[in-house]
Each structure stands twice: as C-alpha cells, then as structure tokens.
Design a protein around this nucleic acid. Sequence first.
DNA 1: TCAACAGTTGCATAGTTGTGCAATTGAATG
DNA 2: CATTCAATTGCACAACTATGCAACTGTTGA
Lengths: 140, 140
Amino acid sequence: MSSASQLACAARDHASARRALPVSREALDRASDLFRAMGDTARLRLLALLSQGPACVSELAAIENETVSTISQRLRVLRSERLVTRRRDGKHINYSLADQHVLDLVFSAMAHASELPAQTPGAASIPEPEPEPEPEKEQS
Amino acid sequence: MSSASQLACAARDHASARRALPVSREALDRASDLFRAMGDTARLRLLALLSQGPACVSELAAIENETVSTISQRLRVLRSERLVTRRRDGKHINYSLADQHVLDLVFSAMAHASELPAQTPGAASIPEPEPEPEPEKEQS
DNA sequence: TCAACAGTTGCATAGTTGTGCAATTGAATG
DNA sequence: CATTCAATTGCACAACTATGCAACTGTTGA
C-alpha cells in the first residue's frame, strides 16, 4: 500500500511547510477506537439508556427488544473502550456509564449533528452552498 | 430479529421504571453517524492535519503517503458528516475543518482515551479492577 | 449438589466498509 | 481546442463487523 508517486502539487505549487501533527499518532489511534465504539446507533442508544442510571443486560435487552446475547456483545465493545463499567449485583450484572465524560462527548456530537440536516455529498458541485462572510478570491 | 422473550429480570427483580430516552432516537442516529466518520484512524489523522490549516488532496496524500484516490474517499466520508468543507482554489481543492466544534470533539475523545492505556475486556473476571472510592458492597 | 437463571463466548454467516485501479470530470494553460 | 494536472467516482475485492444460535461459565436458591 501507498505509493506516493504523485506529490506534484505539494512540492511545487505551495512548497509544503506542514508536517508535524498536533498530537501523537497513538493518541489519535485511541481516539478513533473510541469513536468507532460510539459509531454505532445501537451502541450509542445503550449509552443513552445508561445515562439514566445503571441497568443489567436483560433489562437493556427488554428495552431494546433484542436478545441478551446481542446486548452483551454491544456492551463488550463499549466496555473495551472504557465507556461503561460493570459490577455484579447478586444475580445480575449492572452496567453503568464509565463517567460523565462520555455523555459530554455524546452531547457534543449531537450538537454538531443537529446544526444541519446532514447532506449527502455530491449534491452540489464545488462552489460552497453556504454563503460565507469571507469571499476571499485569491488567484495565482 | 428481536424476540424479547426474556424480560425476566426487568419485570420482576427491579420492576423496571426506565423507558424514555433522554434524547430523540434520530439525534442519536446522527450522532452515531458522526462518530462513525471519526472512528477511523486514517480519517481522524486527516482531521488532525487539517486542524493546522487547509490543505489540498494531493498535499494530504503526500503527507499520508497514500494515493490521491484513497485520500479523496476519506475526505468524502468526512464531508458527508460536515466535518470538513472544501473550496476550489485554482487548480486545487482545499479542504478545511468545518468548525472548531470538530476539534473539541477530538480533544475530548483523546482526553478520555489517555486516561488509561485501554484494556482488552475479558482480562479480569468481574470484580472491578479499578479501586473506586465507592466500595458499596450490597448483597441480597 | 442440582436446577434455574444471568451473562458471556465461539462459531458461521450476512452485511458493511476501506482500498486500489482504471476511467472520468473539470479547471487551467499552451 | 488539445493537453495536463487535480480530484472524483465506479467497480471489484479483501478485511472487518454485527448478529443469531448454541454451548458454556458462574451465581443463587432449593
């Protein structure tokens, strides 16, 4: 993979000065793992449910109308990213949100998502469909 | 799919009182789309690069050591979630972050991710591996 | 100790996603 | 107008992910 045989514009047109990432690659990898775990509607719904308090697997299964197995799998993913924690309570295992942090993330995402009804790319050609206050038209 | 034939514990043991979600299902769907878009290391790296300023596709391809096609695909996904915007500048198309919002999300995720080195679930049995300040040991 | 119940896990399968290649669009330039 | 370069897209394929089922672990209570 990766040939990079075409770095034409980078080298000539604007003499690239950009290379250092603002953060470590590892940190980004972990962050993406986190996002991936939350990047599933069903799993995110579980987080939303748990935001109201702890719940056991079968309870969540009943609410979500899914099998216990499926819910368990979803929770496993969330747990692997430390989004939820579990604790045994008698016969059940109660899951809870790992911390408030998690909800902040979800709410931030929803704030962004609700800004606009989300478009499918390819609708407009190139000219920005949004009237920006900065019509800077620089030309070579 | 979904049988829900086993809501045993929900109905009996703790007489479920939880059902309303704190947010609309739609909002969660959109948020999960957003997270999914960011849930890929390569795409997240692009966001990190763009946080330093706009860049064109071939420039990003050179930095990432990938084909232009691949980068273009990744940007397409990011654009579909309005995480980046594009603007034609002469021969190139410059991509930028859609807004600061996006970076907040990334940084929050990294903050969460860097709290601990991330475990693989299944390591410890059930008893919480973290010494919590709330050792409430309730027992039936 | 055995039965019942709560959860987890292994496995097979279906569906989704990422990538490369080749063809195409579209703008700029000779 | 043809050429060149930037970028996108269609297609096929590989890799990954989610799900259901069945088997299994582990706990409670008779």
